[in-house]
Write a protein that binds this DNA or RNA. Structure first.
Length: 728
DNA sequence: AGGTTAGTAATTTTT
DNA sequence: TTACTAACCT
């Protein structure tokens, strides 16, 4: 009966059983944070303290939300209905739909993604005659987002919070941007939090409803909350104070996005008498890895104080390797060879990952992996809904839902190409502004009044008639049929069928996937929320591949073997972080390093190169200060000392960037054996139809061991390694 | 209207 | 180095 409690250690158990009153759980990396959170959730339900619908559980990512949902279901034996479990944004969207009228929206408002936000802001700036070359829209977007992160609508931006951007007009532009959002009945991501917080603040009756509803509040990754999220939580928790926040100040790596670690300190202040539980027993990593990580993070000041200890009694484990190399190509070679060797020793590639500071670093690894045929997977990049074809399709769907969505209209009015050019669109804008009607209505007026001629006129008329038809169809035949029909009739799918680029087939696949996903939803509106807030990249097969991702993307993940390349001054810690945020920036970089190291269960291999190409220019670099901060006792250094000496006597820096590196290559730092070619079980026969991620579909014309000659449909004949193709 | 070319800027990105 | 934008040509 109580066996779910028996599986916890004493601290975890305390965190689970301290149910009433404010609780702060400081959970180090790998100390069972998720287990505590989910068990606590289940405990609240199983002890009859609340119904599932009376618990509010907040995460940052959809993945975390999904995981919590599954684990809670597992403990309580079956899915719980009516849970308020989700990301800050998804929960706020849900709340805002109910009270949209209180902030001047209707409940069918659309949610804009970052691309739309920027386009809209740019329009606002242009309307205000701001030179967008001198004053970059993304910079202003940054200010606006920061204000929203801090819970500040335009009228509450004080002089102290203001900026001299655009000659002090930033606030005014922010207000204009908000007005446009409202006029279009749309909200951006930041608005979801901002609006709901404003509502809770200004409408005690609404707040009371939620106080009544949510008896318990659980918060994950608390160190990543920004001020408006904190205010939202505080408002919701202020009556019963049954709030439990779980976080780790040492893993705060999103301050540049508005996260404020200070929220942890604020918590103890705002909820006097809050209990604090520390989880310090780590069950993930070996003793040397923990010691290395602890030694590193100890260099940060102003920590809440937490020391990771090995949870098990096994004190053994490989030391952390620190490898010095000549350049990024050699670094990639080292990683590929070590990975291949581990693989031969029976380890799965899927249990290994390369964690880089910047995406630009991935290229060297990709090149090497392709050359030696090591399967890899890039994690991150575009999310499903950020893909061009998905955003286009969504724009069509949004227009059905909401004819006044000008951004969507602008996006697709000439997509596929209909001969509606910039001049025509500008004329529509003029009429739209003059008569205060949406763009689509302005377009209709122009057709009726002869404001457009020839091809453009016919095309716009056909498109508008199409939308009338599709809206009727939505009533009659449902949203799935409608979306599919619309994409066909508008010529959108045809556009990609005609497209000869290798990405086109994949895009058509994605569109199909979108229509498939639509079937899971009752309404088009519910689906649109899902797409913009929740939908993720489909997991690309269960194939055994080594992961390649940024340190940020790796947070919350763990691997047996972790490669940490590029530990060089300027790259990691990043020069820009240090320039912009000084010591705070440096400390956040150090936390990032700490996050990286603590991802490793069994092995961590840190490396640094003496030469690195940045923006096409060769730079020589010195090893990261973080390397010196890892205690020597837990480290095995390979090549780094030699590399440092070599650097001193290497060519003078005036030659940097001008001579090929081979000319100043040092004496061998280490010899890497060529890995044996892994045996293949499944040969691809001549004539097989295959799919390649970069080149698309093709037919095998010849086989030379693991190399295939393939005639690709869109990109011609190529020779590729068999592990990069999938049979279809 | 649409394609081509020259110029410029360049972390990290849970939603 | 690449990738994106704005001016420029057909």
């Amino acid at each position: 009966m109580n066996d779910y409690l028996a599986r916890l250690n004493p601290e975890q158990r305390e965190a689970v059983e301290t149910v009433d009153g404010p609780l702060l759980v400081l959970a180090g990396a790998g100390t069972g944070k998720t287990r505590v959170l989910t068990t606590r959730f289940a405990h609240i339900l199983l002890t009859g303290r609340a119904y599932p619908s009376q618990v509010l559980a907040v995460t940052f990512t959809n993945k975390a939300a999904r995981e919590m949902r599954e684990r809670v279901a597992a403990i309580i034996g079956g899915p719980a209905e009516g849970l308020w479990l989700g990301t800050f944004h998804a929960l706020c969207a849900r709340m805002l739909r109910r009270h949209a009228d209180l902030v001047g929206l209707t409940s069918s408002f659309n949610i804009l993604d970052s691309d739309d936000q920027l386009r809209l802001l740019k329009q606002v700036m242009e309307a205000a005659r701001i030179d967008t070359k001198r004053w970059a829209p993304p910079a202003l977007m940054g200010f606006i987002q920061r204000w929203k992160d801090r819970g500040l609508p335009p009228e509450r931006v004080t002089a102290a919070e203001d900026t001299d951007f655009a000659g002090g007009r930033a606030k005014e532009l922010y207000a204009a941007y908000q007005a446009r959002l409202k006029a279009l009945n749309t909200a951006d991501f930041g608005d979801l939090l901002l609006h709901v917080t404003e509502i809770l603040r200004n409408h005690p009756d609404v707040l009371a409803q939620y106080h009544h509803r949510f008896r318990y509040i659980l918060v994950d990754e608390y160190q990543d909350t920004n001020l408006v999220q904190y205010m939202w939580l505080r408002l919701l928790a202020q009556s019963h104070k049954n709030i439990c926040c779980v976080g780790d100040d040492d893993q705060s790596i999103y301050s540049w996005r508005g996260a404020e670690v200070e929220n942890i300190l604020r918590f103890e202040h705002d909820f006097p008498g809050a209990r604090v539980v520390r989880l310090e027993r780590n069950y993930r990593s070996t003793a040397p890895i923990l010691a290395a990580a602890a030694g590193l993070i100890a260099h940060n000041e102003g920590r809440l104080g937490k020391t990771l200890r090995p949870g098990g009694n096994d004190a053994s484990g490989e030391k952390v390797s620190i490898v010095g190399l000549w350049d990024s190509a050699e670094e990639a070679r080292m990683v590929a060879e070590r990975a291949a060797k581990l693989r031969e020793g029976g380890h799965l590639l899927a249990d290994m990952a390369i964690l880089v500071r910047t995406m630009a670093q991935t290229r060297a690894f990709e090149e090497r992996f392709i050359a030696v045929g090591l399967p890899y997977r890039i994690v991150g990049g575009l999310r499903f809904y950020e893909r061009q074809e998905i955003r286009d399709a969504i724009a069509y769907a949004r227009l059905i839902q909401q004819p006044a969505d000008d951004l969507a209209f602008e996006r697709i009015v000439n997509l596929p190409r209909r001969g509606v050019g910039e001049t025509a669109v500008r004329a529509m804008h003029d009429i739209s502004r003059a008569r205060a009607i949406p763009l689509s209505a302005a377009a209709g007026a122009m057709v009726a009044e002869g404001g457009l001629r020839g091809k453009a006129r016919d095309a716009v008329q056909a498109l508008l008639r199409g939308f009338d038809r599709w809206r009727e169809m939505l009533e009659r035949d449902g949203h799935v049929t409608t979306l599919a029909t619309m994409l066909d009739e508008s010529g959108y799918t045809e556009m990609w069928r005609q497209d000869k680029s290798p990405e086109a087939p994949g895009r058509l696949e994605n569109l199909k996937e979108l229509v498939r996903a639509l079937a899971d939803f009752e309404t088009l509106g519910g689906f649109l929320d899902h797409v913009s807030l929740v939908m993720e990249n489909e997991e690309n097969s269960a194939a055994d591949r080594i992961g390649l991702m940024t340190l940020h993307a790796a947070k919350g993940l763990e691997f047996d073997t972790v490669f940490l390349p590029g530990w060089e001054e300027g790259l990691f810690p990043s020069q820009r972080s240090m320039d912009e945020s000084g010591n705070k920036g440096l400390e956040e970089e150090r936390r990032l390093a700490y996050v990286g190291l603590t991802r490793a269960r069994r092995r961590a291999i840190v490396s640094h190169a003496a030469n690195r190409q940045l923006y096409g220019k060769w730079q020589d670099s010195i090893p990261s200060r973080f390397l010196d901060e890892i205690p020597d006792a837990h480290v095995e250094r390979i090549g780094s000392a030699a590399m440092r000496r070599e650097r001193m006597i290497s060519a003078p820096s005036v030659f940097s960037g001008q001579f090929p590196l081979a000319a100043r290559r040092p004496r061998v730092t280490e010899v890497w054996e060529q890995p044996a070619r892994p045996a293949r079980a499944d040969a691809v026969p001549v004539g097989a139809r295959v799919f390649h991620q970069k080149f698309g579909y093709g037919t095998v014309t010849a086989v030379d061991d693991d190399k295939l000659d393939i005639d690709f449909e869109t990109s011609g004949a190529k020779r590729v390694l068999d592990r990069f193709v999938e049979r279809t």
